[in-house]
């Protein structure tokens, strides 16, 4: 069956993102004053990079668009089941963990223990037999790191 391959579609999306970023940079440098005491000024390099990126983005878009009808390369057997949603879940827990500390909803030790046990449990497939070991490991790790940073390096953790 013919259809857009993963690579052309990813390339099209990437090229569009590159073009958008180049546009944002161009707009962001529009308000910068012209150079007074030197030939180039603050806007010159970012604008040049934005133009080069936009041109390269167009080339990539053109190539990906031309190749979008090509059949996707046959999938190579990985020998294991990829778990992209698990990565999304881990990232989500990580974001919540950092947000909880940043918004001062939880302190460093409880937030870290909760988040790391949850992440570890997700990675072990919520295996009940391994959960107590994992929790013990996480508690030890968090307490050791907290002591190291606060008592040895004299750095306040959140």
């Amino acid at each position: 069956m013919e259809g857009p391959g993963r690579e052309p579609l990813a390339d099209i999306l990437f090229a569009v993102a590159v073009l958008a970023l180049a546009g944002i940079v161009w707009w962001g440098t529009a308000s910068l004053p012209p150079p007074r005491y030197e030939p180039l000024g603050s806007a010159a390099l970012p604008r040049t990079l934005a133009v080069v990126m936009a041109l390269l983005g167009l080339v990539l878009l053109g190539r990906a668009w031309a190749g979008r009808r090509q059949a996707a390369p046959a999938a190579v057997g990985l020998g294991f089941r990829p778990r992209p949603w698990l990565a999304v879940g881990v990232l989500a827990v990580l974001v919540l963990y950092v947000a909880a500390m940043d918004l001062r909803l939880l302190g460093f030790v409880p937030a870290s223990i909760l988040a790391l046990v949850l992440i570890g449990a997700m990675l072990t497939g919520f295996d009940r037999r391994r959960l107590p070991w994992l929790a013990g490991f996480v508690v030890l790790l968090v307490v050791a790191v907290q002591l190291l940073f606060t008592r040895v390096f004299y750095i306040d953790l959140p």
Partner: peptide, 18 residues
């Protein structure tokens, strides 16, 4: 891997914050 990746994630957060 579960232990290893969990510990590395933790070091990423702590190291960057420090």
């Amino acid at each position: 891997r579960a232990y290893l990746l969990t510990a590395i994630l933790f070091f990423c957060v702590v190291g960057t914050f420090a």
